[in-house]
Design a binder for these strands. Structure first.
Length: 376
RNA sequence: GGGCAGUUACCAGAGUGGCCAAAUGGGGCUGACUGUAACUCAGCUGUCUUUCGACUUCGGUGGUUCGAAUCCAUCACUGCCCA
């Protein structure tokens, strides 16, 4: 994997770049749709490629390990061949499940013991095991196994948690370096900066991560309950330290405004379930603000879902029709809402990139952030 | 014509003397959702009030009772069965 920095904004830390992988190039800044179980919920690969313009999608180690399981993934020849997505894939390590499934896991030095959310069976995730699983899944970018610390953790907990994440990172790197990709294309390991909302912990974590010299670096443990301003502050602190010549990935973030603010602070890559989940629950993101398409006021609004969108479905279908689909619980409603939101996210980062390259990113960003907070 | 069963909030439907403005579903309205245990979850859904609370309701009318959605009489309507 290679990262080429094309342009640095002069008024902010925003950058435009190009990541090259064996499965193709990724123009940064980029948003990566989440396909936890090897599929972006309610969206087909052809729509992701042709309509939405997704350049890379995510998968999840924890979910794919449970189902379909490693044997099937290996027989399939890796996730790309299994799900027929021939562009880059990034897999999360299961670190977020350490956080989100906290009631079903026990943390130890060795690793995290999970109880499957499916059948309650016990599984031990270790840094070494998680590297092996991600080799078998075969993602282009794989993530270190970390503890995603809650946003409201106290300093002592955050410090201990960071210690564990750092020791686990060392073990991830050892295992990663002593193993080979399985399917004939390269894989890159991204370490993750933790440290909760504490500047000294974030600095220490960023310095440790920076010293590794990985192909790219991630910032985790944000947008997990802390105030948004804290998140921005942490991004600024961490990006002062992370190398400029490698992509920076802010994990699990966020709202459209979050993306623009993080881009202006030097972040290159994002993923978030928000466009898909919120879309399925009736929230649409547009450049003018958010829409709750379930609201009665859209019942007889026959204007296009989003006349400014590049997506076919947005111009083809009216708000009234999508309102109807969502109200009557038609599967097509989930599809259209998901496609709309993902198209908006991809279009947003694409425009951000164009404005960075054109040199007017900051003024555009300010204007956009203002609009995006509207509720329509 | 005769017999039986029924009529409760937007719909379905529980409740058969006080703890009932009335269970539960559905529908409706609103909100939440940030590395996906999520086509999920939460609140509201008689009227007035921010809350406390007050008021009007359980087919109609008239009774019994300290007190009625609940008991009695009667009328209306609906369904099923027999002619």
């Amino acid at each position: 994997m290679n990262f080429e920095l094309l342009h640095n904004d002069t008024q902010s830390k925003a950058r435009a770049g190009l990541i090259t992988t064996d499965h193709g190039v990724i123009e940064t800044p980029i948003f990566m749709p989440v396909g936890t179980q090897g599929a972006v919920k309610a969206v087909h690969m052809t729509e992701l490629k042709d309509d939405i313009g997704a350049q890379i999608i995510l998968g999840n180690t924890y979910h794919l390990y449970l189902r379909p399981g490693l044997e099937i993934l290996e027989k399939a020849g890796g996730l790309h061949r299994f799900n027929a997505w021939d562009r880059p894939i990034l897999t999360d390590s299961g670190g977020f499940q350490v956080f989100s499934l906290a009631e079903n896991r026990k943390l130890r030095e060795e690793g995290a013991e999970f109880r499957s959310h499916i059948d309650g069976s016990r599984h031990l995730f270790t840094p070494e095991g998680v590297m092996d699983i991600q080799r078998t899944i075969g993602a282009d970018i794989i993530m270190a196994f970390d503890e995603c610390c809650p946003g409201d953790a106290d300093y002592d907990y955050a410090k201990k948690s960071l210690g564990l994440t750092e020791r686990w990172l060392g073990r991830c790197i050892s295992r990663f370096e002593s193993t080979e990709p399985k399917y004939g294309y390269g894989q890159s390991l991204f370490p993750i900066v933790q440290g909760c909302v504490y500047p000294d912990l974030r600095r220490r974590a960023a310095e440790n991560v920076a010293s590794i010299g990985a192909d790219g670096n991630a910032i985790g443990g944000l947008a997990v309950g802390e105030p948004t301003e804290k998140m921005y502050e942490m991004i600024e602190i961490v990006n002062e330290i992370l190398p400029t010549d490698k992509p920076r990935y802010l994990m699990g973030v966020g709202t459209p405004a979050n993306l623009l603010e993080a881009i202006s602070r030097g972040v290159d890559m994002f993923d978030c379930i928000m466009p898909t989940r919120n879309g399925r629950n009736g929230q649409l993101f547009t450049a003018q603000g958010t829409i709750n398409i379930r609201n009665k006021k859209w019942e007889d609004d026959f204007s296009p879902i989003d006349p400014e969108s590049t997506s076919v479905v947005d111009r083809m279908h009216s708000k009234a029709y999508l309102h109807h689909l969502i109200k009557v619980n038609e599967i097509l409603g989930l599809q259209v809402a998901s496609i709309h939101n993902l198209t908006f996210y991809l279009q947003l980062v694409k425009e951000a990139r164009q404005h960075i390259l054109a040199g007017d990113f900051t003024s555009w960003k300010e204007r956009m952030v203002c609009q995006l907070s509207n509720r329509l």
